[in-house]
Amino acid sequence: MNTTTVTGYQVTLVPITLEHQALLRQWRNSPDIKQCMFSNGTISEAQQLTWFNRIKGCENEWHWIVSYKGAFIGSTNIKATAEGASVSESPELEAGLYIGEGRYKNNILAFAPTLAMYDYCFEQFQTQNFKARVKATNSAAIHYNQKLGYKTIRTEEQGSVLEMLLTFNDYQNSTKMLKQFLSRSVKNKRG
């Protein structure tokens, strides 16, 4: 069960609770997010609650809602890929993210939840790699993952799905500058 709040790069990842479900469903059903999902039907309120009741006690997948300056802007999650393993034990995790708040969809802040979550997993869990499965048509997600250091390792379903892998070293090497820019905290003025 996810009770871990993660903070970093100006955002806070708050474990999802029942009270977040209406907002999550609203985001999840928005056309631009829905079209990127593998299961892209419209989610009913009942389906949302069934899903939440299934995952709320899970140790093999954790979900957070992302808070920035006191407002919720998106959602992020991790899932263990190793059979029977918890997220903390699995050497490989699959990660997901969507930004629901329109203002931050095309914004460098969209990297912050991922950086906070990946740092936490690499530091606190036994995570060695992250894996991502992305629709080949989702160029924004592919580009985003590449900026984090992901490499495409295979294609599935006649090229319609890419499987991407991120090692710790590739992550560290690819995100140094991003982390520096998203970690400045003191207002400065020079000259």
Binding site: I108, F111, M177, L182, K187, R190, G191
Partner: peptide, 26 residues
């Protein structure tokens, strides 16, 4: 993109002699 954005921030800081905080970079 994100990489160019960081190059741009560095260039603006250099040209206008300021250092932006993270909120402004965002």
């Amino acid at each position: 993109d994100s990489t160019a954005h960081m190059v741009l921030i560095a260039e603006l800081e250099n040209v206008f002699d300021v250092m932006l905080d993270t909120d402004d970079i965002i």
